[in-house]
Simulated assay, not measured.
Amino acid sequence: MIRSSFAIYGANIPAFLHGFAAVMRFGLAFKLLREVRRMNILLLNVWSGLKDIGGELEPV
Rank of each mutant, 00 (worst) to 15 (best):
R25V: 08
I2Q: 14
I2S: 15
R34A: 13
L28G: 03
I41D: 03
V36P: 01
A29D: 11
A15V: 01
F20M: 06
E35V: 09
I41Q: 01
L32F: 14
G19F: 03
G49K: 13
F6K: 09
N12I: 09
F30C: 07
W47V: 04
R3T: 07
I8Y: 13
F16L: 04
W47I: 10
K31G: 06
A22H: 05
R37V: 00
H18W: 03
V23L: 12
H18R: 08
R3Y: 11
F6T: 06
L33W: 12
S5T: 14
A22R: 08
G49T: 11
E35W: 07
M39A: 14
A21V: 02
V23S: 07
L43M: 10
V46P: 02
F20E: 07
N45D: 10
L42M: 07
G27A: 10
M39I: 12
W47Q: 03
S48Q: 12
L17V: 07
A11E: 14
K31Q: 13
I13Y: 13
F20V: 07
G27E: 09
S48H: 14
S48P: 10
L28P: 00
W47G: 01
V36Q: 09
L50D: 01
N45G: 02
M39G: 09
L42P: 01
E35R: 11
A22C: 04
L32K: 08
L43P: 00
S5R: 15
I13E: 02
R37Q: 09
N45R: 06
N45Y: 05
K31P: 00
M24S: 12
I8H: 14
G49S: 15
R37I: 00
G49C: 11
S5Y: 15
Y9E: 15
V23E: 08
N12G: 10
L17H: 08
G10E: 01
F16P: 00
L50I: 03
R34T: 06
L42E: 12
R25F: 08
R37K: 09
L43V: 01
A11G: 09
L43R: 02
A29M: 15
K31A: 13
F30R: 08
G19K: 03
L43K: 02
L42F: 12
P14A: 03
G27V: 02
E35T: 06
F6A: 13
N12C: 14
M24Y: 13
G49V: 10
K31Y: 14
K31R: 12
N45Q: 11
A11Y: 08
L33S: 12
S48F: 12
L50E: 00
N40V: 02
L28K: 04
I2T: 14
L28C: 07
L42K: 11
A15C: 06
F20D: 05
F16D: 05
L44P: 02
N45W: 06
L50K: 00
A29H: 11
L44E: 06
A21F: 06
L42A: 11
F20I: 05
V23P: 03
A29K: 14
N12M: 15
M24D: 15
I8L: 14
L50V: 02
G10I: 00
H18Y: 08
